[in-house]
Design a protein around this nucleic acid. Structure first.
Lengths: 116, 116
DNA sequence: CTGTATCCCCGTGGATACTG
DNA sequence: CAGTATCCACGGGGATACAG
């Protein structure tokens, strides 16, 4: 049921396209950022948003995007621990690109199934 | 000198995002489509546009995108053979997403180097 | 709940040599 | 010019088990 498509994107370093694709290019990265666009979300919520993602990859993406300044991580002093992730202003700058991708995809869906 | 960044993108099948990312997600795919946005280009021109791409991968992308209806291939009856690739209407529908990616990337570049 | 550590698979791309 | 064929290495991701 899970589509295991593997793709890779690349771009010349220092050019506009790679600036953006370097941030969006990881497995599940666009979905992850998209899930955070509505506001802060917790680890387990993200897993539910994207059921096909493994804990390992989710952690990996989260750490990576945090290191790149795309999202912030805050640990709430509860028991058991609660961790919230939310987009930074840098992360929010990526949303127009993702939105455009979704829009184009929607148009392609209509194209494929004009009557469906 | 060549950046060998490897990334993978994924998306749930049948959703708008994957409709678009399935088409953009391959290594060098956005650059390739972007190179074709100005008009038809030949194999060797594409290699010059994207020096870091290998012939194998370029061929692979070209065949794949042709099969998906993103671009068309025409062999001109010259000697030696001339082959031209150009975006189809489907391929042109992807351009807004790529343009948005480039715009966001440009903004990120300015953000990183506000003074140049 | 929020992760980390380990092992292993295998897809994907590079290099090289060759072809019509 | 425009590819194809072959071999190989790499490294990312899945599964599983474990931890604070």
């Amino acid at each position: 049921m899970v589509l295991r498509m593997r793709t890779k994107v690349n771009a010349l370093p220092g050019c506009p396209m790679s600036m953006c694709m370097d941030l969006l290019g990881g497995l599940w990265t666009p979905e992850l950022i998209w899930s955070l666009s509505d506001g802060p979300r917790r680890f387990s919520e993200l897993r539910r948003d994207i059921p096909a993602i493994s804990a390992k990859v989710l952690t990996s993406r989260l750490r990576d995007l945090e290191a790149r300044g795309v999202l912030g991580r805050s640990v709430l002093p509860t028991s058991p621990p609660t961790v919230e992730y939310e987009l930074t202003s840098l992360g929010r700058e990526l949303l127009p690109a993702i939105r455009s991708i979704v829009e184009v995809g929607s148009r392609l869906l209509l194209r494929d199934r004009p009557a469906g």
